[in-house]
């Protein structure tokens, strides 16, 4: 067994895998959110941006492959780690009130799968179009407005992105710990960075369905 295989076989290695894939996915989520802000600049600008992304199919699929691979690795590692941890306490406590377990940490285990389901829905809704009421290929602006004009869908987007923000917050903070980026002087920086980016991405993403729903963007 090679050393890297031994490393990846360990829970610590798997956590590093989750951290590394998490960073890549985080980069994507950040870029995705920032790009989508162009919705406020009108249909032309957003559709042009979408066109730009689609321009080089080879590159597009290369990026998609990387993202898909990261998602897969992230999920597989998460499931493995979760199964191991579940097995570590076969008999549950009758009363269990561990202090200081923060909300985000506790929700990782189900925020992950819910976000995964949401991503599938999101792709079917706005990329493939099969879950969309009135999908027009190439008219991203229209597709977004049409989708978010349905209050239920808009709420799903809001809720999922709230979860995503929690997931990112804990994930970001955790990855510093997992990578071992820990210095007493930077302790508060880690927390601040995690909060900042989680809020930024959450707010950026949630703002869009809310803007559509309230008619700010139409």
């Amino acid at each position: 067994m090679s050393h890297s295989a031994g490393f990846l076989g360990s829970t610590l290695g798997k956590k590093v895998l989750m951290a590394v894939t998490g960073i890549i996915l985080f980069g994507f989520v950040l870029g995705h959110m920032l790009g989508n802000q162009q919705i406020y600049l009108g249909a032309e600008r957003l559709n042009h941006y979408a066109e730009l992304l689609q321009a080089n199919q080879a590159l597009l699929w290369a990026v998609r492959s990387v993202l898909l691979f990261c998602v897969a690795v992230h999920i597989v590692a998460a499931v493995q780690v979760w199964l191991r941890s579940r097995a570590a306490r076969p008999v549950r406590y009758r009363v269990f009130r561990p202090p200081a377990v923060d909300y985000a940490a506790r929700t990782m285990v189900w925020s992950g799968p819910i976000i995964a389901l949401f991503i599938i829905f999101h792709l079917l809704d706005l990329t493939v179009g099969s879950a969309h009421p009135n999908y027009i290929r190439g008219d991203v602006y229209h597709n977004v407005i049409a989708s978010f004009s349905q209050p239920v869908v808009a709420l799903v987007y809001v809720a999922a992105n709230l979860l995503l923000a929690f997931h990112l917050y804990h994930g970001l903070w955790s990855l510093f710990q997992t990578i071992g980026w820990d210095h007493p002087r930077f302790g508060f920086v880690r927390r601040a960075v995690a909060v900042l980016f989680a809020v930024l991405i959450g707010a950026g993403n949630i703002a869009i369905p809310l803007a559509v729903l309230t008619g700010v963007v139409r």
Binding site: T11, L12, R84, P98, P99, R106, H170
Partner: peptide, 8 residues
């Protein structure tokens, strides 16, 4: 088990 950074 593994660490999930619960900090309990």
């Amino acid at each position: 088990g593994a660490c999930s950074n619960f900090r309990a």
